[in-house]
C-alpha cells in the first residue's frame, strides 16, 4: 500500500442529503419501472377490454390500498422528476459546491413531497 491517502474511503463517510437523493432516485425509478408500469398497463389494457374490466381495475385502484399505491407512485414520480432536474444541472457541471449541493438535495426532496400533496389536494378537493 502507498503511504498517501487512497481513494475511495469506503469506510469513512457520513450521511448527507445528497446520498438520500441518489438512493431515492434509484428506488423511485425502479418502483415506477415495475409497479408504475404494471398499473399503466392494467389501466390501458382494461380500458381497451371494456367497461367490466375497467370497473375491476377502478375497484382495486379506488380501494384504500389502491389509493395508497397511487399516492406512492405519484410521490415516486414527483421525487424522481425533481431529482432528475437536479441531475440535469449537475450534468452541465454546476451545483457541486458542498453547500449548494446540500441545499439542492434538500430542495428536491421537499419538492417531491410538496408536489405530491398539491396533486392529491387537487384530486380530492376539485
Amino acid at each position: 500500500m502507498a503511504d498517501r491517502p487512497l481513494s475511495p474511503h469506503l469506510s469513512i463517510w457520513k450521511w448527507g442529503p445528497h446520498m438520500l437523493v441518489s438512493i431515492l432516485h434509484r428506488v423511485t425509478g425502479s418502483g415506477m419501472a415495475t409497479v408504475g408500469l404494471a398499473v399503466l398497463l392494467w389501466w390501458l389494457g382494461s380500458l381497451a377490454a371494456g367497461p367490466e374490466a375497467y370497473d375491476s381495475f377502478a375497484g382495486v385502484m379506488g380501494s384504500p390500498i389502491g389509493i395508497l399505491v397511487l399516492i406512492g407512485l405519484s410521490w415516486a414520480f414527483f421525487n424522481h422528476m425533481s431529482s432528475g432536474l437536479r441531475h440535469f444541472v449537475m450534468d452541465i457541471g454546476a451545483g457541486f459546491e458542498i453547500e449548494r449541493n446540500k441545499t439542492s438535495a434538500l430542495a428536491v426532496t421537499a419538492s417531491g413531497v410538496i408536489l405530491t400533496v398539491v396533486f392529491w389536494a387537487v384530486v380530492f378537493l376539485k
Binding site: F77, M81, V122, V123, K126
Partner: peptide, 22 residues
C-alpha cells in the same frame, strides 16, 4: 418530463374517473 407531466396533470384535472370519462 413533458409527457408524464401531461398525464399526471390531466389525471388531477379530469372531472371523473369512470369508464365513459376515461
Amino acid at each position: 418530463l413533458l409527457l408524464v407531466t401531461f398525464l399526471v396533470v390531466s389525471m388531477a384535472l379530469l372531472p371523473a374517473y369512470d369508464y365513459a370519462a376515461m
